[in-house]
Computed example of a mutant assay.
Amino acid sequence: MTRPEIVTSVVKAVAAVDRVDPAKLDSLYEYIDPEILNKLYAQERGEWRFTFQYSDHQITVTHDERIFVDGILQSSEVAVRE
Rank of each mutant, 00 (worst) to 15 (best):
F52V: 00
G46C: 11
D18K: 10
F50I: 01
E30D: 14
S75Q: 04
D64Q: 13
R45V: 00
R45Y: 08
I67D: 12
T62Y: 03
V80R: 06
E35K: 15
V7F: 03
A15V: 12
T8H: 00
Q53W: 02
D21K: 10
L37P: 01
P4K: 06
Y54G: 02
G46Q: 05
R3T: 09
T8W: 00
H63G: 06
G71L: 13
F68H: 10
S9G: 07
Q43G: 05
S76H: 12
K24H: 02
F52C: 06
K39A: 07
E35L: 11
A42N: 11
Y41K: 07
R66M: 11
D33N: 14
I32Q: 09
Q74G: 08
R3N: 05
V80C: 09
K24W: 00
F52Q: 01
R19M: 13
T8C: 02
P4V: 02
S55D: 02
V69I: 14
Y41D: 01
Y29L: 03
I6A: 06
T2I: 14
R49H: 04
F52A: 05
E44S: 05
V78E: 06
S9Y: 13
V20S: 09
E82W: 05
V11A: 03
D21A: 03
V69A: 02
M1Y: 10
L40M: 11
I72C: 04
R81K: 11
A13V: 14
D70F: 13
F68I: 03
D18E: 15
G71C: 12
A13R: 06
I6C: 04
E65K: 11
R66W: 03
M1L: 04
S55R: 15
K39Y: 15
V7G: 10
D70V: 12
R49L: 14
S76G: 13
S75L: 07
E30K: 11
E82A: 04
E5A: 12
V14P: 00
S27L: 15
Q74K: 15
E5R: 10
V14M: 04
A42Q: 09
E77A: 05
V80G: 02
E5F: 15
